[in-house]
Design a protein around this nucleic acid. Sequence first.
RNA 1: GUGGGUGUAGUUCAGUAGGUUAGAACGUUGGAUUGUGGUUCCAAAGGUCGCCGGUUCGAAUCCGGUCAUCCACCCCA
Length: 467
Amino acid sequence: MAQKPGIPKGTRDFTPAQMIRRNYIFDTIRKVFKTYGYQAIETPAMESLHTLLGKYGDEGDKLIFKILNSGDFASKIDSSTASRLSEGSAVPFELSRALTSQISEKALRYDLTVPFARYIVQHRHETTFPFKRYQIQPVWRADRPQKGRYREFYQCDVDVIGSKSLLNEAELLHIICEVFGRLKISIRIKLNNRKILAGIAEIIGQADKIVDITVAIDKLDKIGLDGVNKELARKGLPQESIDQLQPIIHLSGTNSEKLKQLKTVLSESETGMQGIAEMSSVLDFSKEMDISEWIDLDLTLARGLNYYTGAIIEVKSSDIAIGSICGGGRYDDLTGIFGLPDVSGVGVSFGADRIYDVLEQTELFPEDSGSRTQILIVNFGEDELKACIPIAITLRDAGFSVELYPDQVKMKKQMSYANANSIPYVILAGQQELSENSVTVKDMTEGNQSSSLITNIVDHLNNLMND
RNA sequence: GUGGGUGUAGUUCAGUAGGUUAGAACGUUGGAUUGUGGUUCCAAAGGUCGCCGGUUCGAAUCCGGUCAUCCACCCCA
């Protein structure tokens, strides 16, 4: 019995029409990356499970797709785990964890940053620092799919590793502006700094609650000021600290005004002041790059706190609500866990699939990137087909993209094929034409036809296409 | 992991006081036009109404379960 075809939830097929559009995005991003001197690398779709585990927090670990070991994996389960399983009691989380490590040793990559860190450590002796790399590959997350969220999606990462200069941060912001400028997507860039957040937590005497504080503040737009304060209280912050936070939550004005206010608030925190210095420096560079008008200093931005140590960057479409379409930041010691300490890196990741959704909803995809077949040669039968093969070769050598219709079927069918595939020119070479060493060229857009000697076919088509 | 919406032709969807043979549009195929597409006209093919069970003389329709999918939360690109 035929089974119904289907693909796993959160995954998608891409049609030729969609691929044209996807490649437009990838090509645009890749071109920009290259003009700033970044080099491409790729890493495997799967990594050792232990490479990935523990890098994204507990939540992240749950979202990693594990790959079942091949062969008789069940025989390798140790006896104590096996007996606990056979007891049949409700499987506690801890047991699942013990079991996972025994039946799975590989997993699909969850992002491109951790594999990159692993790559750097393994290839450190053949890498010249600072190393500027880009990487455009799919990643997988066992998330529940929803709008703008897929289980398989492409990230386009650019990172500089082995340089502490804040010029890198600014350059990434410049790249962001350039990419979205070329794609004609209007954006706002949110910029924050982990050290400023740490300074704030320190000043109000809650240094260990930095994550709770920022996560709560991050929800300001969603749940409002009261909601934020309630959540802060629920996380165990004393009222006094919450009161101290209010001016910071209410921070307003231009970026430099915000910085000025922060300087007063954070003057007692060394870390905080360092964050402010970093932020000012990045903003100064971005002025020189003439991109500062797109950047908002935003203390409510609280992403990736598990490993970011300096700048935190997030980009949102100003037209479509779809979450962030690009994000990243500075991580001072990402390679440390793999045994290479003190290598600082900064990078951002473009979410190609969300960018696709934004371009589609705002109808900003260009008409056609012209990557289709330009000429179809009609099949009139075996003799004519053989005579057409050299014509096709000549045209392809001249740079045209040419198809010979493979089957000898009714012309109506062949013309429909040209039409359905938006092929602009059709060459008709039947017995009539061939006996005169000529072909008929039909312009599918205009509907008119012209005749050309076979020896002159390249010039003839060049003339037609250049009109 | 938590909560909600939706499952009918390849696609988008109609279809209730439960009642013969479940419809439309688009797409596909054939014909009008045996060497001419895109427009037009005609015709055809295409459905176990997600799946399993229940109520009923009778279920696409009501009920329960299940699966799938979408949306929201958590988190994230």
